[in-house]
Measured scan of single mutants.
Amino acid sequence: MSIQHFRVALIPFFAAFCLPVFAHPETLVKVKDAEDQLGARVGYIELDLNSGKILESFRPEERFPMMSTFKVLLCGAVLSRVDAGQEQLGRRIHYSQNDLVEYSPVTEKHLTDGMTVRELCSAAITMSDNTAANLLLTTIGGPKELTAFLHNMGDHVTRLDRWEPELNEAIPNDERDTTMPAAMATTLRKLLTGELLTLASRQQLIDWMEADKVAGPLLRSALPAGWFIADKSGAGERGSRGIIAALGPDGKPSRIVVIYTTGSQATMDERNRQIAEIGASLIKHW
Score class of each variant (00 low, 15 high):
S221W: 06
I278W: 15
P224C: 09
T193N: 00
P249W: 10
V78S: 12
M184L: 08
E175D: 00
P249G: 05
D129W: 10
G154Q: 03
H151I: 04
E277Q: 15
G263M: 09
K32W: 02
A185Q: 05
I206H: 11
D174E: 09
I275D: 10
G234P: 03
Q88K: 14
I125D: 15
G141N: 03
E195H: 12
D113L: 08
S264W: 06
D113I: 11
L167F: 03
R162Q: 13
H94Y: 15
P65S: 07
R162D: 07
K32N: 01
L218Y: 07
G236Y: 12
G85H: 02
N168F: 06
W227K: 06
I244M: 12
L196Q: 12
K252W: 00
M268T: 11
Q88G: 13
L192H: 12
E237L: 13
M67Y: 13
V42A: 01
K109S: 12
T267I: 14
P143K: 12
L73K: 11
W208A: 05
G85M: 02
G52N: 03
M67C: 00
W227N: 06
W286T: 08
F149K: 15
G236D: 12
P65I: 04
R202L: 10
E35R: 02
N134Q: 03
P217T: 09
D161N: 08
H110R: 14
N50T: 04
E108M: 15
G194C: 02
T158S: 09
G226T: 06
K109P: 11
L196W: 08
G85P: 01
A40Q: 03
A245N: 06
L199D: 02
T139E: 10
P249N: 06
C75G: 07
P249Q: 04
A200Y: 03
P217R: 09
V42G: 01
L150M: 15
I206E: 08
L191E: 02
W286P: 11
D231F: 01
Q88S: 14
I275H: 11
T262D: 12
E62G: 14
L47M: 04
A225P: 04
P224I: 00
P181H: 09
V157T: 03
D269P: 11
H151P: 03
K144R: 04
M67D: 13
K109A: 13
V82D: 01
K53C: 02
L47W: 06
L192W: 05
L74K: 07
T147G: 13
D99E: 13
L160Y: 10
E119H: 06
G234D: 11
P249I: 07
W208M: 11
T112D: 04
L38M: 12
N130H: 08
R220A: 01
I244Y: 05
P217C: 02
V82S: 09
A266P: 15
T69M: 11
Y103A: 00
I243R: 07
S233N: 04
H24K: 13
D250H: 04
I259L: 06
L74G: 09
L73N: 09
L79P: 04
G236L: 09
G194I: 10
R241A: 13
E270S: 13
D113M: 13
V117K: 07
S96D: 04
A215M: 02
E175V: 03
V106C: 15
G114K: 07
H24S: 05
W227Q: 02
P224N: 01
T261L: 04
D155P: 12
L188D: 09
A235W: 14
M66W: 06
I283K: 11
S281T: 08
R241M: 13
D177Y: 04
P143E: 10
I283A: 13
R162N: 12
S104Y: 04
D113W: 07
D177T: 05
M184C: 07
G279I: 11
D212Y: 11
A77I: 05
V257W: 08
T116K: 06
W163A: 06
E164I: 14
D113C: 13
E145L: 05
L192A: 07
A34I: 01
V101F: 03
S80G: 06
H24V: 11
L55N: 08
S122R: 14
A211W: 00
G234E: 05
D113T: 10
N50I: 04
A222R: 15
E237C: 14
V72G: 06
E169S: 01
T147S: 12
P217M: 00
A40T: 01
F228E: 11
G279Q: 11
R59W: 04
K284D: 03
A200L: 11
R159Q: 12
G242D: 14
Q203A: 08
F149C: 14
T139D: 11
A40N: 00
V82M: 06
K252M: 04
P65H: 08
N152A: 07
T107M: 03
D48Y: 00
Q88I: 03
S240K: 06
P181L: 10
T198M: 02
E277C: 13
D177W: 06
I206Y: 13
E62M: 15
D48M: 00
I125K: 11
S221Y: 12
L146E: 05
V72I: 12
A182S: 04
A211R: 03
A230N: 14
L160D: 03
E277V: 14
Q203D: 15
R118V: 14
E164V: 12
R92S: 11
T116I: 07
E62K: 06
R41F: 03
I45N: 06
G142M: 09
W163M: 04
L28N: 05
Y95H: 00
M268I: 10
W208L: 07
M66Y: 05
E175R: 04
D48K: 13
S128T: 01
V101R: 02
A280Y: 01
T147W: 13
T138L: 06
R159I: 00
P217L: 06
L160S: 11
N173D: 02
E102S: 12
D250C: 03
I206S: 10
G226E: 14
L205G: 08
L247F: 01
S240Q: 08
H151A: 08
P105G: 10
Q203N: 12
D113A: 05
P253Q: 12
T198N: 09
A280T: 00
Q97C: 02
L47I: 08
V101M: 00
M127S: 10
A84G: 07
E62Y: 08
D174R: 10
V106W: 00
C121I: 12
E210M: 10
T138M: 15
L192K: 13
S68Q: 01
G194N: 11
G141Q: 15
E277T: 13
T139Q: 12
R271T: 05
D36T: 07
A276C: 09
S221F: 03
M66K: 13
G85C: 01
S51D: 09
G114Y: 05
I256Q: 14
N134C: 04
S128W: 03
P143W: 14
M115H: 00
S96N: 04
I275Y: 08
Y103T: 03
G216W: 01
A40F: 01
I278D: 14
T138Y: 01
I206N: 00
L192C: 02
G194K: 14
G76P: 05
G242Y: 15
L247A: 03
K32D: 01
F58S: 11
N272W: 04
L191W: 07
S104T: 02
T179A: 10
I54V: 04
I140Y: 12
A215R: 09
G43I: 06
D250M: 05
R118S: 15
P172F: 04
E169R: 02
S221D: 11
T116N: 03
K109D: 13
A132P: 13
N50V: 07
P249V: 07
L205M: 09
D177S: 04
D83G: 01
N134L: 09
T126Q: 00
